[in-house]
Design a protein around this nucleic acid. Structure first.
Lengths: 239, 239
DNA sequence: TCGCTTTTAATGTATATACATAAAATGAGG
DNA sequence: CCTCATTTTATGTATATACATTAAAAGCGA
């Protein structure tokens, strides 16, 4: 496959930076020299360097030149796969068992509803994700009925509500919070663990524009689930 | 402050997408119409749209047009800031107390060394991150002496080794694993917790090219530290 | 209606040019 | 040697233009 010249220039510098050949603080050649080296116009070089700038790999100062950036935060891609897809990927049978399934009127329930900030009625859908019949994760979910009217009639007894939502609802933003919690009585019983066992809690708020769609809280036994994040070329490769 | 036109166009569309006014799948105007609307050249529009494309907010197909991208669940940006920087951001005093500091010869230690896969001598640097004097996190770290010779003479008793590495070691690739573990005897004592308390374990392997740099394992009390991942504005806002 | 070719409308890439802007480097005056 | 104005240099932005590339859409013949 033929790749664009500006893309090739970008990759060249990216790999020289990632390999350490160009260390943080090092100065890159000026645009004039780069364009002479590749035999192209300055705009082409500029496009390549602009991309590296947007990716945070370089810093540029007028008159001074272009420098390899010193990384500040590790901003990395976090893989949070759909549980059902992940289980099937391992060649196991995926199952979802419904634990609770009800529409709750606003104001009726107490604190959970604040999580979706009073957008009218909420559908509560709790359940258990299973791999080969073994409980893997307890899930507590609230869905805004106003934002997703179809949820009321959806068959969520076998299909995980997360999977259903993914297919039916477009969303634009999500926030995920990861923390460690001890297993409560309910989780302990469903996951067959002693009460107090260290578990991973993954909470996610999802919304579209200003409208909240869903809040979900998933509890995994600590040793059953690893979340893996990568930094580096993956960020570029993922696109 | 005066902002560039291509940047203004980019922001205009970004906010329309993030607000939900332009929903996933919606089609954007063609470049010709946008350039007519802003009264500028096509290259300027193209620059704005290229940035949105790189950020993953839109998809483009020749002849068909430009469309708001449907976000995929599984890849979101995870910001894992330097602990010291994060503590100071909250207006607290950051402190690091060294717990162990020694060079270990290859083969001497057992399993930890496999984590850096026998690249010669390793520097072991364990310590305690503190916020306002209160223990926040226990850190166990191994650094390859071959990859980072300067580490031997670095003063790591007050500065966190992570911070030191960030400043001295060129760009890296990293893989992070997050899980939940019960507090062991050592962590319990350092963090003033009962043994068995649910803790968040963050492990990270870092390398440059094929060379392994460091392995670190950080143990946080489950309720003291939340990792937050966002999809959407974060990618752009982080810059 | 099916399947093939042709047209066309959109993005993709690249160039040459122009002027703006900011900051480092220089140099004159004290 | 210091200070301040001037020059120089590298990046920042924008334009007008040209041609390439694709895939949708239209046309057409069997």
């Amino acid at each position: 496959m033929k790749i664009a010249l500006h893309e090739r220039i970008r990759q060249d510098f990216e790999s020289r930076i990632l390999s350490g050949e160009l260390a943080p603080g090092d100065r890159l050649p000026i645009e004039q020299d780069i364009m002479a080296h590749y035999g192209c116009a300055r705009m082409t070089v500029n496009k390549a360097l602009s991309a590296l700038l947007a990716a945070g790999l370089i810093e540029r100062r007028k008159k001074a030149g272009t420098f390899v950036a010193r990384p500040k935060v590790h901003s990395m891609i976090l893989d949070v796969p759909d549980i059902a897809a992940q289980v099937r990927e391992r060649g196991q049978d995926y199952g979802f068992r419904s634990l609770a399934h009800a529409v709750r009127q606003p104001g009726a329930g107490a604190e959970e509803e604040r999580l979706l900030a009073g957008q009218g009625a909420l559908m509560q859908v709790d359940g258990l994700h299973q791999a080969n019949g073994v409980p893997l994760c307890v899930e507590y979910r609230l869905v805004s009925v106003a934002a997703v009217p179809d949820i009321v009639d959806a068959d969520l007894h076998t299909m995980a509500p997360g999977t259903w939502l993914l297919r039916h609802v477009p969303w634009t933003e999500a926030e995920t919070r990861i923390s460690a919690v001890p297993a409560g009585a309910a989780e302990a019983s469903h996951l067959h663990l002693p009460v107090g066992t260290a578990c991973l809690s993954v909470e996610r708020w999802t919304w579209r524009g200003a409208e909240r769609i869903t809040y979900v809280r998933q509890i995994f036994p600590g040793d059953a689930y690893d979340m893996v994040a990568r930094f580096g070329p993956s960020a570029a490769a993922a696109r």
